[in-house]
């Protein structure tokens, strides 16, 4: 049963690792603005779609 020492210590180490990761993310400002990224994510798609459409338009003009 001594394995329990090891598992508990490992689980704590993992926990501490994520705690510090979280603190680090807060510190670097990743949680300062939780709204804009949600919108930004949608725009990336829009942009790609728009580009391809415009390329098609140009082609028809050239022809």
């Amino acid at each position: 049963m001594n394995i329990i020492f090891l598992t508990i210590i490992i689980s704590l180490i993992i926990g501490v690792f994520f705690l510090f990761l979280f603190l680090h993310l807060v510190k670097t400002g990743q949680y300062d603005d939780v709204y804009s990224p949600s919108v930004r994510m949608l725009f990336d798609d829009e942009l790609v779609k728009e580009k391809t459409e415009n390329i098609n338009d140009n082609k028809t003009i050239n022809n």
């Binding site: 705690l19 979280f22 603190l23 807060v26």
Partner: peptide, 18 residues
């Protein structure tokens, strides 16, 4: 920006759970 409170809550929450 004062983020101290977030650190404090995170630490307290972590310790409380464990």
């Amino acid at each position: 920006i004062d983020r101290k409170l977030i650190y404090q809550v995170a630490l307290a929450g972590f310790s409380f759970g464990n």
